[in-house]
Nucleic acid binder design. Structure first.
Lengths: 184, 184
DNA sequence: GCTGAACCATAGCGTTGCTATGGCATGATG
DNA sequence: CATCATGCCATAGCAACGCTATGGTTCAGC
């Protein structure tokens, strides 16, 4: 129903499944609980996608590859992505969302430890910047404000700008990030 | 009702106004039309806020000041900001939103023309990057994912990174952007 | 074979957005 | 001045929404 852009109503949901509306309440405790489960599933899929990103010997490439996987996941199921970041929604298992973010922090830390970034660069700050910028671009694309074609080039240049500001050599950085987008 | 975080229902809206539900339909054509008008009002206010940003002789400072005004406006009325970028909503007058963006593009173009940025820097691309990154940070703060305290420093460093990548001298750039946040 | 708990189908409540209808102004026209 | 046309809104009611109370069904454990 999300993919078909149909309004997700309780009655339409159980229609055809042979179950009645009560089944939703016994299993999810109501409509908000169902949405919470949907978001949970979204973050679970996202975490699985990020976990499947292979580790290479280029930490900056891997950091960018996480961003690529993030964007691809979001664009594959835009409605799910919007549901994940829907307002006024509390996530039952916040660890799922944190796990994805921690992977980004770890990649940034590795890039720093391997000498690609300045020694005083904060991986957490950098990861937050990359994530927020990517989230902003993906959000605008997902809801049609920006065309999908600009996502790759804009995310690339923004990521390169952030990493270069953190100490990486711009030319080498751009090569790593562009390789990640080409591979993904 | 937005500020009080009450659910905006048609019946609750007309209660106390002496009018009936039909008034909403004659003036707005229904509930979607009313939300469209709310978003319109949001963009109108945003445009007014950005128009009130004074022009100095530092184009980079002015560009950052637009970002500060944007963030301040969003955080003052978080529910209005969320409504403005709500999914599945078509804006009646798209020119209002474009007007705000054009101010950002103009500021970037001025920075380039005054020699702060590289001659081949594209103002439109840079403006889109700054806007998307700011939108991402503001969105995450507005819905409580990130704490409000990180907005100023993260927006500052991201903006500096993007402008530095576009050719500005990092130290001078940071001074300009930080001055904008201190003034706003 | 009995008991207790878990689960769900049925029916119905209150509220939602929305529409059909009719009454009441106001302003132009003869 | 009388008449009609038009725009606006109050009333009443409809279909659909999320949700709950109730009772029937199923199945594991003793």
């Amino acid at each position: 129903m999300l993919a078909a852009r149909e309004p997700v109503t309780l009655r339409a949901l159980v229609e055809g499944t042979g179950a009645s509306t009560m089944a939703v309440y016994t299993h999810f405790g109501g409509m908000p609980g169902l949405w919470s489960a949907v978001r949970q599933e979204g973050f679970t899929r996202l975490t699985a996608r990020l976990a499947a990103v292979p580790r290479t010997d280029d930490a900056v490439h891997d950091l960018a590859a996480l961003g690529v996987a993030y964007a691809r996941t979001a664009l594959e199921h835009p409605e799910l992505y919007r549901a994940m970041f829907d307002a006024g929604a509390d996530l039952a298992d916040e660890a799922a969302a944190d796990a994805s973010f921690d992977r980004l922090v770890a990649a940034a830390a590795r890039a720093r430890d391997e000498g690609r970034l300045a020694p005083d660069a904060d991986p957490r700050t950098l990861a937050t910047q990359v994530w927020a910028a990517g989230h902003g671009l993906v959000s605008l694309v997902v809801q049609g404000v920006l065309p999908a074609e600009v996502l790759a080039p804009l995310t690339t240049s923004t990521t390169v700008a952030l990493l270069a500001a953190a100490g990486d050599e711009p030319g080498r950085c751009r090569a790593s990030v562009e390789a990640a987008w080409a591979a993904g």
